[in-house]
Computed example of a mutant assay.
Amino acid sequence: MLFKPVTRDHSGTMPQSWQSLKDGDWLLEQEACRLSLWWPRFYGYYLVKLGPLAGAFDTSAARVQRHWQLGGAGQVLYAGPELPLQERSVDVLVLSHNLEYSSDPHQLMREAQRVLVDGGHLVLTGFNPLSLLNLCGFWKKTPPFDGRFYHPLRIKDWLALLGFEILSDERLLFGPSLSKSPQWLEAMGENYAHFLGAVYVLVARKRSLPAIASPALNRRKVRVVSPIAGPVTGRVARQGSSGAKG
Protein backbone atom coordinates (compact mmCIF):
# COMPACT_ATOMS: atom_id res chain seq x y z
CA MET A 1 0.00 0.00 0.00
CA LEU A 2 1.36 3.41 -1.00
CA PHE A 3 -0.87 5.78 1.01
CA LYS A 4 -1.60 5.98 4.73
CA PRO A 5 -4.01 8.17 6.78
CA VAL A 6 -2.72 11.49 8.22
CA THR A 7 -3.99 14.32 10.39
CA ARG A 8 -4.93 17.58 8.75
CA ASP A 9 -2.82 20.74 9.01
CA HIS A 10 -3.87 24.05 7.39
CA SER A 11 -0.49 25.83 7.58
CA GLY A 12 1.29 27.29 4.57
CA THR A 13 0.47 29.74 1.76
CA MET A 14 2.02 27.91 -1.18
CA PRO A 15 0.91 29.19 -4.62
CA GLN A 16 -1.66 26.91 -6.22
CA SER A 17 -0.31 27.38 -9.74
CA TRP A 18 2.70 28.73 -11.58
CA GLN A 19 0.45 31.51 -12.86
CA SER A 20 0.40 32.87 -9.29
CA LEU A 21 4.02 33.90 -9.84
CA LYS A 22 5.05 36.75 -12.11
CA ASP A 23 6.30 35.16 -15.34
CA GLY A 24 5.54 31.81 -13.72
CA ASP A 25 4.99 29.99 -17.00
CA TRP A 26 8.44 31.01 -18.18
CA LEU A 27 9.97 29.98 -14.84
CA LEU A 28 8.26 26.57 -15.10
CA GLU A 29 9.69 26.16 -18.59
CA GLN A 30 13.21 26.92 -17.36
CA GLU A 31 13.07 24.46 -14.46
CA ALA A 32 11.43 21.79 -16.60
CA CYS A 33 14.16 22.19 -19.20
CA ARG A 34 16.87 21.52 -16.60
CA LEU A 35 15.05 18.41 -15.37
CA SER A 36 14.15 17.00 -18.78
CA LEU A 37 17.42 15.06 -19.02
CA TRP A 38 16.87 13.43 -15.63
CA TRP A 39 13.40 11.91 -16.04
CA PRO A 40 14.50 9.12 -18.44
CA ARG A 41 17.15 8.04 -15.93
CA PHE A 42 14.63 7.24 -13.21
CA TYR A 43 12.79 3.93 -12.96
CA GLY A 44 10.72 2.04 -10.43
CA TYR A 45 7.11 1.69 -9.28
CA TYR A 46 6.05 5.06 -7.82
CA LEU A 47 6.89 8.67 -8.67
CA VAL A 48 5.23 11.27 -6.42
CA LYS A 49 5.00 15.01 -7.13
CA LEU A 50 4.33 17.03 -3.99
CA GLY A 51 2.16 20.14 -4.39
CA PRO A 52 0.65 22.01 -7.34
CA LEU A 53 3.94 23.44 -8.64
CA ALA A 54 5.70 20.08 -8.79
CA GLY A 55 2.53 18.62 -10.29
CA ALA A 56 2.96 20.79 -13.38
CA PHE A 57 6.21 19.04 -14.38
CA ASP A 58 5.86 16.60 -17.25
CA THR A 59 7.43 13.42 -15.87
CA SER A 60 6.10 11.07 -18.53
CA ALA A 61 9.65 10.28 -19.70
CA ALA A 62 10.46 8.66 -16.34
CA ARG A 63 10.38 4.87 -16.50
CA VAL A 64 8.16 4.60 -13.45
CA GLN A 65 4.94 2.61 -13.44
CA ARG A 66 2.75 4.97 -11.41
CA HIS A 67 2.86 8.78 -11.23
CA TRP A 68 0.97 10.46 -8.38
CA GLN A 69 0.43 14.07 -7.30
CA LEU A 70 -0.18 15.08 -3.70
CA GLY A 71 -2.07 18.36 -3.32
CA GLY A 72 -3.98 20.41 -5.87
CA ALA A 73 -7.54 20.23 -7.13
CA GLY A 74 -8.70 16.70 -7.91
CA GLN A 75 -5.49 15.16 -6.58
CA VAL A 76 -4.68 13.02 -3.54
CA LEU A 77 -4.96 15.16 -0.41
CA TYR A 78 -1.70 16.21 1.20
CA ALA A 79 -2.35 17.46 4.72
CA GLY A 80 1.11 17.62 6.38
CA PRO A 81 3.26 17.65 8.41
CA GLU A 82 3.51 13.92 7.58
CA LEU A 83 3.35 12.76 4.00
CA PRO A 84 0.46 10.31 3.50
CA LEU A 85 2.88 7.68 2.19
CA GLN A 86 4.20 4.44 3.56
CA GLU A 87 7.82 4.19 4.64
CA ARG A 88 10.21 3.27 1.80
CA SER A 89 7.45 3.20 -0.80
CA VAL A 90 8.47 5.91 -3.31
CA ASP A 91 11.16 5.65 -5.99
CA VAL A 92 11.18 9.33 -7.05
CA LEU A 93 9.90 12.27 -4.99
CA VAL A 94 9.60 15.70 -6.64
CA LEU A 95 9.45 18.91 -4.57
CA SER A 96 9.22 22.29 -6.27
CA HIS A 97 9.43 25.35 -3.98
CA ASN A 98 7.84 23.38 -1.14
CA LEU A 99 10.47 24.34 1.42
CA GLU A 100 9.78 28.06 1.00
CA TYR A 101 6.21 27.56 2.22
CA SER A 102 6.70 24.75 4.73
CA SER A 103 6.01 25.50 8.38
CA ASP A 104 8.62 22.86 9.30
CA PRO A 105 11.15 22.33 6.48
CA HIS A 106 13.25 20.00 8.63
CA GLN A 107 10.26 17.73 9.09
CA LEU A 108 9.53 17.83 5.37
CA MET A 109 13.08 16.72 4.61
CA ARG A 110 12.85 13.94 7.18
CA GLU A 111 9.62 12.81 5.57
CA ALA A 112 11.28 12.74 2.16
CA GLN A 113 14.00 10.52 3.59
CA ARG A 114 11.40 8.28 5.26
CA VAL A 115 9.21 7.61 2.22
CA LEU A 116 11.97 7.10 -0.35
CA VAL A 117 13.28 3.61 -0.99
CA ASP A 118 16.99 2.96 -0.59
CA GLY A 119 18.56 4.32 -3.75
CA GLY A 120 15.48 6.44 -4.48
CA HIS A 121 15.78 9.94 -5.90
CA LEU A 122 14.74 13.34 -4.57
CA VAL A 123 14.22 16.17 -7.06
CA LEU A 124 14.18 19.57 -5.39
CA THR A 125 13.85 23.12 -6.73
CA GLY A 126 13.77 26.36 -4.77
CA PHE A 127 14.71 30.03 -4.59
CA ASN A 128 18.18 31.14 -3.53
CA PRO A 129 18.24 34.02 -0.99
CA LEU A 130 21.71 35.05 -2.20
CA SER A 131 20.61 36.36 -5.59
CA LEU A 132 19.78 39.59 -7.41
CA LEU A 133 16.16 38.46 -7.56
CA ASN A 134 15.84 38.28 -3.79
CA LEU A 135 17.84 41.47 -3.29
CA CYS A 136 15.46 43.44 -5.52
CA GLY A 137 12.28 41.84 -4.18
CA PHE A 138 13.17 41.34 -0.53
CA TRP A 139 10.56 43.82 0.76
CA LYS A 140 7.74 42.53 -1.43
CA LYS A 141 4.99 40.39 0.09
CA THR A 142 3.73 38.85 -3.13
CA PRO A 143 4.70 35.35 -4.38
CA PRO A 144 7.37 34.16 -4.32
CA PHE A 145 8.70 36.69 -1.81
CA ASP A 146 6.05 35.83 0.79
CA GLY A 147 7.88 32.54 1.38
CA ARG A 148 11.12 31.88 3.22
CA PHE A 149 14.16 31.26 1.04
CA TYR A 150 16.83 28.77 2.12
CA HIS A 151 20.35 28.86 0.78
CA PRO A 152 21.09 25.79 -1.40
CA LEU A 153 24.25 25.07 0.59
CA ARG A 154 22.08 24.76 3.67
CA ILE A 155 19.72 22.41 1.83
CA LYS A 156 22.70 20.31 0.72
CA ASP A 157 23.88 20.10 4.34
CA TRP A 158 20.45 18.83 5.38
CA LEU A 159 20.51 16.26 2.62
CA ALA A 160 23.99 15.06 3.59
CA LEU A 161 22.93 14.65 7.22
CA LEU A 162 19.94 12.60 6.11
CA GLY A 163 22.10 10.28 4.06
CA PHE A 164 21.61 11.68 0.55
CA GLU A 165 24.21 11.88 -2.18
CA ILE A 166 24.01 15.02 -4.34
CA LEU A 167 23.99 14.04 -8.01
CA SER A 168 23.34 17.45 -9.57
CA ASP A 169 23.32 21.07 -8.42
CA GLU A 170 22.31 23.59 -11.08
CA ARG A 171 21.55 27.30 -10.76
CA LEU A 172 19.64 29.50 -13.18
CA LEU A 173 18.13 32.99 -13.52
CA PHE A 174 20.85 35.49 -12.68
CA GLY A 175 18.88 38.68 -13.37
CA PRO A 176 17.03 40.93 -10.88
CA SER A 177 13.54 39.71 -11.87
CA LEU A 178 11.69 36.57 -12.99
CA SER A 179 11.26 38.05 -16.44
CA LYS A 180 13.56 36.74 -19.13
CA SER A 181 17.16 37.78 -18.56
CA PRO A 182 19.54 38.68 -21.41
CA GLN A 183 21.45 35.68 -22.68
CA TRP A 184 24.78 37.32 -21.96
CA LEU A 185 23.81 37.83 -18.31
CA GLU A 186 22.78 34.20 -17.92
CA ALA A 187 26.02 33.02 -19.54
CA MET A 188 28.12 35.29 -17.33
CA GLY A 189 26.29 34.10 -14.22
CA GLU A 190 26.69 30.43 -15.02
CA ASN A 191 30.39 30.82 -15.80
CA TYR A 192 31.52 33.29 -13.16
CA ALA A 193 28.84 33.68 -10.47
CA HIS A 194 27.14 30.31 -10.20
CA PHE A 195 26.32 30.93 -6.52
CA LEU A 196 24.11 33.93 -7.45
CA GLY A 197 21.54 31.94 -9.44
CA ALA A 198 18.04 32.80 -8.23
CA VAL A 199 16.78 29.22 -8.62
CA TYR A 200 18.52 26.00 -7.62
CA VAL A 201 17.70 22.59 -9.09
CA LEU A 202 18.99 19.69 -7.01
CA VAL A 203 18.87 15.96 -7.68
CA ALA A 204 19.88 13.68 -4.81
CA ARG A 205 19.92 9.93 -4.20
CA LYS A 206 19.13 8.27 -0.88
CA ARG A 207 21.96 6.02 0.17
CA SER A 208 21.22 2.49 1.31
CA LEU A 209 22.80 3.28 4.68
CA PRO A 210 21.78 6.86 5.57
CA ALA A 211 24.10 9.01 7.62
CA ILE A 212 23.10 9.72 11.23
CA ALA A 213 21.01 12.88 11.38
CA SER A 214 22.12 15.74 13.61
CA PRO A 215 19.89 16.96 16.49
CA ALA A 216 18.91 19.93 14.29
CA LEU A 217 17.23 17.58 11.84
CA ASN A 218 16.26 14.71 14.11
CA ARG A 219 15.39 15.21 17.75
CA ARG A 220 15.20 11.50 18.45
CA LYS A 221 18.19 9.55 19.73
CA VAL A 222 19.74 7.39 17.05
CA ARG A 223 21.81 4.24 17.30
CA VAL A 224 25.19 4.10 15.62
CA VAL A 225 25.33 1.39 12.96
CA SER A 226 28.61 0.15 11.56
CA PRO A 227 28.75 0.63 7.80
CA ILE A 228 28.71 -2.45 5.58
CA ALA A 229 31.66 -2.78 3.25
CA GLY A 230 31.00 -2.63 -0.46
CA PRO A 231 29.68 -0.16 -3.02
CA VAL A 232 26.35 1.58 -2.56
CA THR A 233 23.96 0.87 -5.42
CA GLY A 234 21.67 3.49 -6.93
CA ARG A 235 18.45 3.40 -8.92
CA VAL A 236 19.50 5.33 -12.02
CA ALA A 237 18.64 3.12 -14.97
CA ARG A 238 21.56 1.41 -16.63
CA GLN A 239 21.91 1.60 -20.37
CA GLY A 240 19.72 -0.97 -22.05
CA SER A 241 17.31 -1.42 -19.10
CA SER A 242 13.61 -0.82 -19.58
CA GLY A 243 10.53 -0.21 -17.44
CA ALA A 244 6.85 0.57 -17.81
CA LYS A 245 5.24 3.81 -16.94
CA GLY A 246 1.66 4.68 -16.23
Results as ranks from 00 to 15, higher is better:
Q69Y: 12
L70C: 01
L70H: 03
A73F: 15
A73R: 07
G74R: 06
L77F: 15
L77Q: 15
Y78A: 06
Y78H: 11
Y78P: 00
A79G: 13
P81M: 03
E82Q: 13
E82F: 02
P84T: 10
L85F: 00
L85G: 07
L85R: 01
Q86C: 12
Q86G: 13
Q86I: 07
S89Y: 07
S89E: 12
S89A: 14
V92S: 10
L93V: 07
L93T: 06
V94Q: 05
V94K: 02
V94A: 05
V94T: 08
L95G: 03
L95D: 03
L95R: 02
H97V: 10
H97G: 05
N98R: 00
N98W: 00
E100Q: 12
E100L: 05
E100S: 13
E100H: 07
E100I: 05
Y101V: 00
Y101C: 00
S102H: 11
S103V: 08
D104P: 06
D104H: 09
P105C: 11
P105A: 11
H106P: 07
Q107V: 04
Q107G: 07
R110E: 12
A112S: 15
Q113M: 09
R114L: 06
R114G: 13
V115M: 09
D118G: 14
D118S: 14
D118T: 10
G119V: 02
G120M: 11
G120A: 11
H121M: 11
L122F: 12
L122V: 11
L122S: 09
L122I: 10
V123T: 15
L124M: 14
L124N: 07
L124K: 04
L124Y: 14
T125G: 10
T125V: 14
G126T: 08
G126D: 12
G126Q: 09
G126C: 10
G126W: 07
F127L: 06
N128H: 07
N128Q: 10
N128C: 05
P129H: 14
P129W: 15
L130D: 12
L130F: 15
L130I: 14
S131M: 10
L132T: 03
L132I: 03
N134C: 11
N134L: 06
N134V: 06
L135K: 02
C136F: 15
G137K: 06
F138L: 02
F138M: 01
W139Y: 09
W139P: 02
T142P: 03
T142W: 13
T142D: 08
P143M: 02
P143T: 04
P143R: 00
P143L: 01
P143A: 04
P143V: 02
P144S: 06
F145C: 00
F145P: 01
G147Y: 08
G147M: 07
R148N: 12
R148V: 15
F149A: 03
Y150I: 04
Y150T: 03
H151W: 13
P152N: 03
P152G: 03
P152F: 11
L153S: 07
R154V: 10
R154K: 12
R154M: 09
I155G: 04
K156T: 07
K156L: 02
K156F: 04
K156H: 05
D157T: 03
W158H: 06
L159Q: 04
A160W: 12
A160N: 06
L161R: 01
L161W: 04
L161M: 01
